[in-house]
Structure formats: structure tokens, C-alpha cells
Amino acid sequence: MSRPPRVVHKRRETITALPLYYSGHLLKKHSKDTDFKKYYGELRGCSLFLYKDDTQDTYTEKLDLDQLKSMESDSPYQKKEPTVFTLSLSTEKVQLKMDSADTGEVWRGFILTVVKELPSKLQLMPGQVLQLKEVLAQEIKRKSPSSRPPLPPRPGFLSGPPSKDKLSSEIAECFFDVTRKEAEKMLEENPECGSIILRPSTMPNNYALTLRQVSSSGPVMKNYRVTQINAGFVIELETPVTVSSLKDVLKYFIEKTEYRLCPFIPSQPYDTLIEASPAPKCLNTTPRAPKPLPKAQVSPMLRSQTKEKILPNKPDEGEYVIPDDPSDSSLNLAQLDDELRRALKQRRENIYVSTDEKVSPYETKLNGKTTM
């Protein structure tokens, strides 16, 4: 059973949060596609929303016409022939095909009006041109910042225990690039880590929320779609809810479940062993042997080829010589007496060389004869 057109129109308006300027059936083809695909298009604000048919309430694709550089017609304006337009966007080229030249001219007028300005040359009726002027005035007013009324202050009773900074960190940690089955498996196997996973949707630029709720019959897995729009994000419920950011999406589910759910944050492993760090390469911890003391270097004694007999140093003349031990066999008494006599004689010659004094009796006795 298809939904009533009024319900579908209301949901589209809630999801897109943009005024509807024009709508109708058309064909679209990307530069990489080979054939045109049929869509039902709605020109809301400065965006073209494409649906599979006129009964679908959530758009399949969106073209941001703010990035439009040029719009060229591949066929002249002639009745009873389809019209093909090539839209050159900043990232790609898209072709739009209308069933007739009149329909194509209306689409061209509305697209150029919301993007740039009212075209000067249009093959339209006066009533259609007047409608384009109203659309232009409405779009200028919508884009003007002063036309947006300030948001009312947020009631204090809506503030929950989690702080905004905490939610900001959790929104980044509970987002995983996984499928629905993978998200449900993560929540089922790790219930202690949390119960909310934010993940990408199968539709481009959209998201999904996977929850694990505990009921009386056991844990239940639920999945919700979050659609991205120009004004923020729309939570696809029976009554759609529009919020400004993904952080508010997460906060909305936490508040609605009375804080029984929390974001899924994987637990971090902890180490159980302490290992000593290796010593730096520049240090050596092995004990070293004591460094040996340097030995004195003595120059070798030079010896002549013929051995010379080392004689004792002779005393200088006029000095007394202490006799050696009498037990020395190398000297005898005769040698001592002879040496003593020679020493006294030499001393006498030195002292009395210029005098005629008599010789002392001691000298006379030593010589063995008496002199007068």
C-alpha cells in the first residue's frame, strides 16, 4: 500500500528542510554511466533531490547546484523532441534529459534562477516568468543571514549528565566503518563496551545508528537511518527529528533512552609484564679486567765487544780513605802500609815545601830512621 502524497510531501520537506520550487520526472546520467536512469526530481533551494519514484520519501541522490559552472543544451529548442542538458559541476559532469523541449526549458529557467539569476532569454509563458521572479526573491531572502531568526535558548531540563566535551570525544570513538551485520556482531560480543555504534549508511553521505537494547525477553538489535541535509541531520523516525550535528544525534538517543545506552568504545588492553629496557649501545655494562700498570722502560745497556774490568773509583789525592774490613782478602797489611806512606809523603811535600821545619818524631818513627 503506497503512502498518501500528502504524507510523502511532508516527510520530504522535513528531511530536506528546504522550500520546493519545481518538481517532475526526468532522466539522469553521469559521465561514467552508459545509459540514462529515470528519476523523480525536486528542486529545493539550491539543490536537486532525485527519488526513484514519486512515492519515495527519502531521496536517493542529491546534486548541489551551488557548484554549477555551466549548463549547456545538447539539442536546439524544438517541440516534440527530448531536451538534454549537460551540467558542469566542480567535481563531475551530469546530463539531464527531459521528455519535451517545453519541459526542458522550464527546468533550465528554474535551475539558472536559483543558481545565478533570472535568464534574459527564455521560451516561457508570462505566468511562468512571474513564478521565476518569485522564486528568485525567495531564494535571495533564504540565503541572507539576517533573514534567519535566532534560535531560542535551550531549556535547562534537557541538559543531561554527559557533558558536551565528553559527547564530542565519544562521537569520534563510537564511529566505525562497518556494515549492519558487523555492527550487530560487535555489540553482541562486547556488551560491556557500550550499546551504540554510529556507522555509514548504504546511501551516499548518510549514516546509520545500530543499538543494542536489553528488554524483558532479552537483548534486541535496532537500526536507525540518519539522513544528512544542508541544515544538519534528520533521524528517520515516525516523526522525523532534525538536529544540527552528529553529536546531537547521539545525544538525542541517549536522552530518549534515559541514559540506559552509551556509545560503544572498545576497551584497551593492559600489559601484565615488566621487562627491563636494554642498555644503550654507547654503554657497556660487562665488568672489565683491571688495567695493568705500565712497566718502566729501561734503555738497554750497551756493551762493547771486549769486556772491560770494572775498577773501583780511586779517591782524590789528599783525601783520607777509610780502610776496608780487615777480613777482606783482596788487601793485605803491606798494601795498606805502602799506601799510607805515600799519602803522608805527598802531604808533607805539599805543606812543608817552602819551610825548613824539622820532621816530627811521629814521621821519623814511621820512616824508621831519625833525622835532625
Rank of each mutant, 00 (worst) to 15 (best):
P119W: 00
P153H: 07
P191R: 00
S354Y: 11
F85Q: 02
L65F: 03
K222P: 04
A296I: 11
G127Q: 13
E92N: 10
W107L: 00
S327M: 12
K97R: 15
S146F: 12
L136Q: 11
P300W: 05
L340H: 04
K29T: 00
P162Q: 06
M1F: 09
R260Q: 15
K29Q: 04
K309S: 13
E236P: 01
R288S: 14
G109K: 01
S75W: 07
Q228E: 15
P145M: 03
V135G: 03
F110Q: 00
R11Q: 12
Y259C: 11
E117S: 06
T86K: 03
E319C: 09
K62I: 14
N284E: 07
K314S: 13
P266K: 10
T239V: 14
P161A: 12
D33S: 09
Y22H: 13
R108K: 05
F253T: 04
S88M: 09
K116T: 09
D325P: 01
E339C: 10
R12I: 01
R341I: 15
M125T: 11
K69L: 15
P292D: 04
N284S: 07
H30Q: 14
D328I: 07
E117P: 00
K256G: 08
Y22P: 01
T58M: 14
D316K: 12
K116M: 03
P219E: 00
T83D: 10
D328A: 09
S168Q: 15
A279D: 10
G127V: 11
L130G: 07
S267K: 06
S31C: 08
V114W: 00
R142A: 09
E192Y: 09
K37C: 04
R212V: 08
I15E: 08
V243Q: 02
Q67C: 05
P5Q: 06
A137C: 15
V249Q: 04
M71W: 00
R148W: 07
E189Y: 05
K164G: 13
Q56V: 14
L366F: 08
C174N: 09
V359K: 10
T285R: 01
G127T: 11
K29E: 02
F85N: 02
